[in-house]
Design a protein around this nucleic acid. Structure first.
Length: 623
RNA sequence: GGGGACGUAGCUCAAUUGGUUAGAGUACCGGACUGUCGAUCCGGUGGUUGCGGGUUCGAGUCCCGUCGUCCUCGCCA
């Protein structure tokens, strides 16, 4: 062992080590120069230890004076108890310090573009800067915590599935482009100029083939790639827990995943989730919440008032109903004083949100005392108003918002409003806000009482899981004038809907399910088609003739005829899981080296131009 | 492809209706200091207000364009 190598980590030393000669290595978090001592907080990913340089060794003291932030050191010294009153109960190593006897500077560091040290009241540097110097960003304690959490999550998943007989199997990255679904990332073939591999949007086909091969319990923590526009919770490459089982029905998959979720939340956050998770059909959630991934941490449910609207004198409502549309409403309880009539006028805050989702407008009433007010109130005769108040449970101070439109538009618009109002009216609190408040209060109290701060405790109601089941098989794609698979084209229709699969595709429901947590889709799967004839008719419905289906998926159709067991599975979006476990709303916060919103890597600069020669090799002419 | 927000010192931000020499904290540099722990105190360096154009006696501020970042609708089976 080289002389400078560590005997302990920076998070390890306790009172029991007092008197021991130790060597620590780490980064200088901060130095405090006090004339006769230099205090150096030495940090690694295990923790922080105070190193003291005394002035009596002039050479050593001078060297300590010259240290800067983020220098990399090896310090040999003796562990000693801190002076009485100078203990730090807040940190694990806070009872001791290391008296330095010898210092080796392993590397110096110039002033950095932003601070690696984190303080509670300090805004972190801008995200683009942090992504550009991601290796520094990742040195921050909070990100080290997140990546540690992510490791723990992955480890828990592997252990859980391994204990239940699952095999972790790998599938190719270089595959074949499939027509359905997201845009593929393409990789040109050098050997076959003009031909391309596609990077996988998911291991879907391979895992089905593995079922056919008899690997009846499979999983993989797999990277998936989709070349689509990004969001706060979407990256072009992301990680799924991909799971597939043979000889199972829907509830087997759901139950397995509930057990896994309980285990992950227990291990990672110490919270005990109640199971089973609630289940709602797609039709139910769309009607009630206007979203297929509703946040169940608050109510604010959508209510259908089409029948009442039809009886009213309001032309807009009556016309919408006559055209086959619906009128739906939400009662924003107590929100009347918070939204001025101006904010409710066309172009105002709330109507603008409704318009985002293609709604033609937003009607409203306020409950002032026992009376309903607003410009459309006069179109509702008293008995109708009474019915309206009863159905919406109106109390004084309530704000009623109405959308009259085609059912899907009304659902989208009110769903969007519901989400907005849930946040704006503070109908729920994110647990990390509660944690921040708790930590601040606890830190102060702990300092006063000279004790370690009590950790924040998660509650089960911080995490509202929901299964959404019974999705439709197909949605009409207006642009392409054809039916499109809502889940994917390998999803099995529900047995009772098989008879009208071809006659009424829009009414066919799928054996598909999504897992939703706090308004995020965190998983989705289905029971797959295991019969060649059903698979062929689904392809046909999606506008793929037999010839074409054979060309594109011939291997799958053949495989389905070669002894395919009934099978199904699910994929969990692990980045989103980690995001929700870590208490952030930004998926980039839980990925070591993420891309920015335009899918550029700000650190390496990728994507980038390549040499003409590289292009020639793969048979591509520069544009 | 559409909508919105933002861009000022290395970093985080401020700068009244368009008005003097663009400020503060922090970092950095120099100095003082016997136990600090985000030490403290004193002093100092640091700016093409993203870029280009326009309006104006005068632009960080208003207008147009452009680049960048984020949020969002479409998109993401």
């Amino acid at each position: 062992m080289a002389e400078w190598q560590r005997t302990h980590t920076c998070g390890e030393l306790r009172e029991g080590h007092v008197g021991r000669a130790v060597t620590l290595t780490g980064w200088v978090l901060i130095t405090r120069n006090y004339g006769k001592q230099v205090f150096v907080d030495l940090r690694d990913r295990y923790g922080l230890t105070q190193v003291v340089f005394e002035a009596d060794d002039a050479g050593l003291f001078q060297a300590a004076n010259d240290l800067g932030r983020e220098w990399v050191l090896s310090v040999q010294g003796t562990v000693r108890k801190r002076l009485p009153g100078a203990e730090r109960p807040g940190i694990p190593t806070g009872q001791v310090e290391v008296e330095a006897k010898r210092l080796t500077v392993l590397n110096q560091c110039p002033p950095l573009p932003f601070s690696v040290t984190e303080f509670p009241d300090e805004e972190p540097a801008g995200e683009d800067l942090r992504l550009q110097y991601r290796y520094l960003d990742l040195r921050r304690r909070s990100l080290q915590g997140v990546l540690t959490l992510r490791h723990r999550m992955n480890k828990t998943i592997r252990d859980f599935l391994d204990a239940r007989g699952f095999l972790e199997l790998e599938t190719p990255l270089l595959g074949k482009s499939t027509p359905e679904g997201a845009r593929d990332y393409l990789v040109p073939s050098r050997v076959f100029p003009g031909e391309f591999f596609a990077l996988p949007q998911s291991p879907q086909l391979y895992k089905q083939l593995l079922m056919i091969s008899g690997y009846d319990k499979y999983f993989q923590i797999a990277r998936c790639l989709r070349d689509e526009d990004l969001r706060a919770d979407r990256q072009p490459e992301f990680t799924q827990l991909d799971v597939e089982l043979s000889f199972v029905e829907r509830d087997d998959v759901l139950g397995l995943m509930e057990g896994l979720a309980v285990e992950v939340f227990r291990t990672c956050l110490g919270v005990e989730l109640p199971v089973p998770f609630p289940r709602m059909t797609y039709a139910e959630v769309m009607a009630k919440y206007g979203s297929d991934k509703p946040d169940l941490r608050f109510g604010l449910e959508i209510v259908d008032i089409t029948d009442l609207a039809a009886e009213s004198e309001f032309t807009v409502f009556k016309d919408a109903v006559a055209a086959g549309g619906v009128v739906r409403a939400i009662n924003a309880t107590g929100a009347a004083p918070k939204y001025s009539n101006t904010a409710l006028k066309p172009g105002g805050e709330l109507p603008k949100i409704a318009e985002t989702y293609k709604a033609k407008g937003l009607a409203w009433m306020k409950a002032e005392g026992d009376k309903l007010t607003g410009s459309i109130e006069k179109f509702f005769p008293e008995p109708l108003k009474a019915k309206l108040k009863e159905r919406l449970g109106v109390k004084p101070g309530d704000l009623l918002l109405f959308v009259a439109d085609k059912p899907d538009v009304a659902a989208d618009a009110l769903g969007g409003l519901r989400t907005h109002l849930g946040a704006a009216l503070k109908l729920y609190r994110n647990w990390w806000d509660e944690k921040a408040a708790h930590d601040a209060a606890e830190e102060e109290a702990a300092k006063k009482e000279k004790r370690a701060p009590a950790p924040f405790k998660h509650r089960p109601d911080h995490f509202r899981f929901l299964w959404v089941v019974d999705f439709p098989m197909f949605a009409w794609d207006d642009e392409e004038k054809r039916w499109a698979a809502i889940h994917h084209p390998f999803t099995a229709p529900m047995d009772e809907d098989l008879p009208h699969l071809e006659s009424d595709p829009g009414k066919t429901r799928a054996k598909a399910y999504d897992l939703v947590l706090n308004g995020y889709e965190v998983g989705g799967g289905s029971i797959r088609i295991h019969r060649n004839d059903v698979q062929s008719s689904v392809f046909k419905l999606l506008g793929m003739e037999a010839e074409e289906a054979k060309k594109r998926f011939g291997f799958l159709l053949d495989a389905l005829q070669s002894g395919a067991p009934p099978h199904g599975g699910i994929a969990l979006g692990l980045d989103r899981w980690c995001m929700l476990l870590a208490g952030t709303t930004n998926i980039r916060d839980v990925i070591a080296f993420p891309k920015n919103q335009k899918a550029r890597d700000l650190m390496t600069g990728a994507p980038a131009a390549v040499d003409a020669r590289q292009l020639r090799d793969v048979g591509i002419r520069p544009a």
